[in-house]
Simulated assay, not measured.
Amino acid sequence: MRIEARPTLILNTQDPERDAIDLYWLVGLLKDIRGGSSLVLASKNSGISYRGVWGKLNQVEASLGIPLMIRTKGHGSKLTEFGSFLCQFIEEMQGSYAQHGVSYQDALQREIKKHQKLEGARWSFYSSSDSIIQKAAAEVKGFGLKIAGSGESLEQLLNNNAHIAGYHVSDEKSSQVIHQRLRKHNIEIFPVMKRTQGFIVKKGNPFHIQAIEDLLNPKIRFINRQIGSGTRLLLDTLLLEQGIEPADINGYLHEEFTHSAVANAILAGKADVGLGVKNIALENGLGFVPLKDEIFFIAMHKDMLSHPESSKLIRKIRSYSGNTSGYKSISLNRQVQNWL
């Protein structure tokens, strides 16, 4: 399947009993005549009867008040000066559009493929935003990944709306509470990687941001993550520990839904700092100030263990995290024993 984007140019008349005329179709007919074809042959090439072509030509000429062809008995038909101009105008319009049309076609094609993958997925995978998770899920067949906050991902799993969930935790006590709750519902938990969260800042860190209290500077524009995300929970915990009121931070209510969106907002000059993971800052040429390490877990219902794709997904996540700056692979429970 290949989708092709084409421009259109339609002539609408004020006569309700007459159909609109596609000028792109008409110019195809005029090009045939300009090339030496008779009106009879041009009509055949256009896929419309000779009588039908005459009717459309007369309708266009009457609407414009300008002749498109000169009909000379015994000598065929030739284009008028305006008829030739119309051909050239649309040819140039098509050429100009072509360079933009390809990008529209490709964008639509990518979106179709993404949704085809989701529709064809056997298992629903909800996960907190992470580039390694997205990369691994795209390479293992059968998983339809949906990005959500850590909290929502776990709730989808507990409510049996998801087969597998990805979530991250930044302190041992919270992790233990989550672990106990999941185990009660016959859900298996696998630690897969450690990653570093911190401030994503402009290159060179012009505001010299080093700690949470620096966000109190009213000149610094902060960009937050959405409620329910693990990163938002981390920020709110740090603010509580420091006794800082969220309302005192310029931009606390300005939210984005992924680490990449936070980085893009800073690159675009819409914000000066946001909380996110180290590798996203590095990939975008931004500065990074580490604040906290956290553990990323994969949780799934026990019946998922019988599918080899589940093990393959976990192996890929661990493999990629072991080779990505700001991450460390975790392959054994004893590496994070205090978190379980």
Rank of each mutant, 00 (worst) to 15 (best):
S260I: 08
L286G: 02
S260Q: 15
V201N: 01
G287W: 03
V273A: 01
R318P: 01
N205M: 09
E255A: 09
F297C: 10
E283N: 12
Y320V: 03
K312M: 13
N284T: 04
I212E: 04
I317V: 15
L239C: 06
G251M: 05
V262I: 15
E255H: 13
R318S: 09
K312Q: 15
T237E: 13
E283Q: 14
D303Y: 13
E256R: 15
L253H: 13
L286C: 04
L286D: 01
K219V: 09
L305S: 14
L313E: 01
A271R: 06
T258K: 05
E283D: 13
T231F: 03
D272F: 07
E283P: 00
L275A: 02
P308Y: 06
P246S: 03
L233V: 13
Y252E: 05
L313Q: 02
E245K: 13
K302Y: 01
E309Q: 15
S306W: 05
P290D: 03
H259Q: 04
L216W: 08
A265V: 04
S319A: 10
N217Q: 11
L275C: 02
K202Y: 04
A265R: 13
S321E: 05
A263P: 01
A268G: 01
A247Q: 12
S306M: 09
I244P: 06
V273W: 02
Q242D: 13
R315I: 00
S321V: 09
N224M: 01
P290C: 05
K270W: 03
V273E: 03
E294M: 11
F207I: 00
S311T: 11
L235F: 03
H307C: 06
R315Q: 15
I266K: 04
D303S: 11
F207W: 13
Q210K: 14
F257Q: 12
F296E: 10
K202A: 12
M304L: 14
L282V: 11
I220L: 07
L253E: 14
H254Y: 11
F257S: 14
E256I: 09
D248I: 00
D236G: 01
A268K: 11
P246Y: 04
L267N: 07
A265I: 04
E245H: 12
A299E: 05
E213L: 00
L238H: 04
V262A: 12
K202L: 11
G243R: 06
L234W: 08
N284W: 02
S311C: 01
N250F: 11
